[in-house]
Nucleic acid binder design. Structure first.
Lengths: 232, 232
DNA sequence: TTACAATTTGTTGCATGCAAGAAATGCTAG
DNA sequence: CTAGCATTTCTTGCATGCAACAAATTGTAA
């Protein structure tokens, strides 16, 4: 299953102090809500350590954009602005497009098989109308695709981005939109086809279209009004 | 003219403790070399503060990939592997391609004028054979282009990437390759043309081609530098 | 009640002490 | 000289105390 942190990958020079991961997960999964105060002293007591390691973790989270440290006032869980969400989806599109292209260039790798199996399971989830399972599979699909690009720097930046997007909550809302669920699965299949035919350009294009479509749904779900122009 | 940090942008929630920026610049500009030990106590004396803020800054730099903290051994300036350099250039291509597309979609903005003027100055630098000035202008061109995309998240990730690439040293060597200098200027002009004609796809394509070409040169230069260290 | 100043409370920022561990050094035996 | 072990040194990891500052609270006067 997953590591202690939410979207974080396996490799890390320092073995990832559990503290940072646990705090990050609390934020990403919504255990603590935007605006909540994360006081060093209180956290230190909760985790039964001193303020120092807590403080270091909070500084990291600030760098990751998950919290805001207001000097001598407090550290607060941050909520991305609508603009930031839009910006991050642009980046998501670029990252996953790049990943699809790189994966297509690599050819037949284990990750490609994983993707095929993912779509098969997704098909069954769609038939059963199991939105919860499907949401999980969607996450796995994108995660596997990026991993398959075999580019650690890309993975690093991608994880950073997705943590800040607090992917789970936004996407699970998105998928409940009518029709989007079946569409999404078909698009995943199209992506696999493009990758399988070892056509990096096509793979990137299809992937980016897919992400753009999802993003639009997600943006709609996050905020009702706000009409955006779509590239094409 | 630059901020305290090297490639960092203006906006930052916390006003960017000077310490972090100064340390970062020391690494990026090569004042301290890869493999060098950055001992907390020594730095604390140099900067006339206690170990605590030094320690926090070093942890940030670890997160940025500039140093490696080996537990209870020391913090060392990190040197990107050849693979990482390759990976980062892939990301650079994606980032700047995205930026070019976004900028093309924005249309006529101040940054576009800055780019035009940059090329004009570059032309003069080429004619005079002033490689040093040209190197600076190249940096400015790419920096302005990304800024012109008006996407702060993109800028954040881009800055993170470029700091780790320690751009200056690699690029300045790159440009000395024969012919590359004039080519580079022409490509910059082509990028501006695509952006001016408000064709995001074309702009992205041309930009990515340009970055790919530069990257290849830079990769060669980096390998060359690598070889020069080994014989000993 | 309202305005406003003084005080109290709560939080982070920084300095410092000490312990844990890794690596270098020296020492001893052969 | 070499190998192996003890010791010393150097470094980070963490705990804690105190100062600086912001914000909330209280008290007071009109």
């Amino acid at each position: 299953m997953q590591e202690s942190s939410s979207v974080e990958s396996k490799t890390r020079s320092t073995p990832e102090t559990p503290l940072l991961g646990r705090l990050r997960q609390m934020i990403v999964t919504g255990v603590v809500q935007p605006g909540d105060l994360l006081a060093e002293t209180a956290l230190a007591q909760d985790f039964e350590v001193s303020r120092t390691p807590i403080r270091e973790a909070l500084k990291q989270l600030e760098r990751e954009g998950l919290v805001e440290v207001r000097s001598r006032v407090g550290t607060f869980v941050r909520k991305p602005t609508q603009r930031e969400i839009h910006e991050m989806f642009s980046l998501k599109e670029a990252f996953e497009g790049l990943a699809a292209g790189l994966l297509a260039r690599r050819g037949a790798v284990p990750e490609l098989e994983q993707l095929k199996e993912n779509v098969a399971r997704s098909q069954r989830a769609v038939e059963r109308g199991d939105a919860e399972l499907y949401s999980q599979l969607v996450h796995e699909f994108h995660s596997t695709l990026v991993a398959g690009a075999d580019n650690r720097k890309l993975t690093e930046h991608y994880d950073l981005l997705m943590n800040q997007l607090a992917y789970h909550r936004i996407v699970s809302q998105t998928l409940s939109l009518p029709g989007r669920l079946q569409n999404s699965k078909d698009e995943h299949q199209a992506i696999i086809d493009a990758i399988s035919s070892k056509d990096p350009l096509a793979a990137e294009l299809v992937m980016r279209r897919h992400v753009a479509a999802s993003s639009q749904s997600a943006a709609l779900a996050a905020m009702k009004e706000e009409d955006e122009e779509q590239p094409g």
